[in-house]
């Protein structure tokens, strides 16, 4: 499974205008990810891991080179096509959970499905499944304000997973959590990766996350300095 490449970057460069010149955030990145990977982009702040995650997530465009996700070249996509790619194949998990505070757990998880062509029954089934995966069936009617940090992040995972995406991009998902909750979250994601064959790509410098990774890609100043298989077998 892991041999079928669903994400590929070739000589990927990303520059941001700063003052009169440019700051190079990513410099000639060549990477590929197969289906079912559990990989992490690791490095200090400013190393380019979030920028790379944004480009893979079609939230940003490369300045040079190529980024191909699910056979679609990110640089060539229109806003609408990029939205469709995210909608259909990608899920996001954020450091600050980013749940919509006025909606219940059920509604937050249901939200991505409203953008897809699904029936009410299909949506209901999918939401219940996703909430069950993260063990929050008893919190369906709660609002984010009534949840702990760990529970909120589990809702965010359910929201990312409810449409069964090919890839989940997680940016510092444990940064706001204590150790126990971090492990719980990571175990949940690992379980989903194993059961649903979803590719997980993390941007992190948290050691707790790194110990769960099967592949660790180290970035420094926008370049890949190391890409190692950690041997954490499924």
């Amino acid at each position: 499974m892991q041999n079928s490449k669903i994400i590929l970057t070739e000589e990927l460069v990303k520059r941001f205008p700063v003052g009169g010149g440019y700051f190079t955030a990513l410099n000639k990145i060549n990477l590929s990810f197969g289906k079912g990977e559990f990989a992490g982009l690791v490095g200090p702040s400013g190393s380019g891991k979030t920028t790379l995650l944004n480009i893979i997530g079609s939230l940003d465009y490369p300045s040079e080179g190529k980024a191909i996700v699910m056979d679609q070249s990110i640089g060539d996509l229109t806003h609408r096509q990029a939205a469709r790619l995210r909608n259909k194949y990608l899920g996001f998990i954020f450091q600050t959970y980013n749940l919509l505070p006025v909606y219940t757990v059920y509604e937050n998880v249901e939200f991505p499905l409203l953008l897809l062509d699904t029936t009410t029954t299909e949506r209901h089934r999918a939401v219940l499944d996703a909430v069950e995966w993260v063990g929050l069936t008893d919190k369906l009617k709660s609002r984010p304000g009534q949840l702990s940090g760990g529970e909120s992040q589990r809702v965010a995972i359910a929201r990312a997973m409810v449409k069964k995406p090919e890839v989940v991009l997680a940016d510092e998902p444990t940064a706001n959590l204590d150790a126990a909750n971090s492990h719980h979250i990571l175990q949940t994601m690992e379980k989903l990766n194993r059961e649903l064959q979803t590719t997980f790509i993390f941007a992190t410098h948290d050691e707790k996350v790194i110990q769960y990774l099967r592949r660790k890609i180290s970035l420094e100043d926008g370049t890949v300095v190391n890409d190692e298989n950690l041997g954490n077998e499924k």
Binding site: G57, L59, H79, R80, A83, R84, L85, R86, N87, K88, L90, F92, N98, L100, F111, P112, L115, R159
Partner: peptide, 15 residues
């Protein structure tokens, strides 16, 4: 804008 960002990330198009 935050909510907008989230909706875009989830796959809603700008229009």
């Amino acid at each position: 804008y935050g909510e907008v960002g989230l909706r875009l990330a989830i796959g809603e198009n700008k229009g």
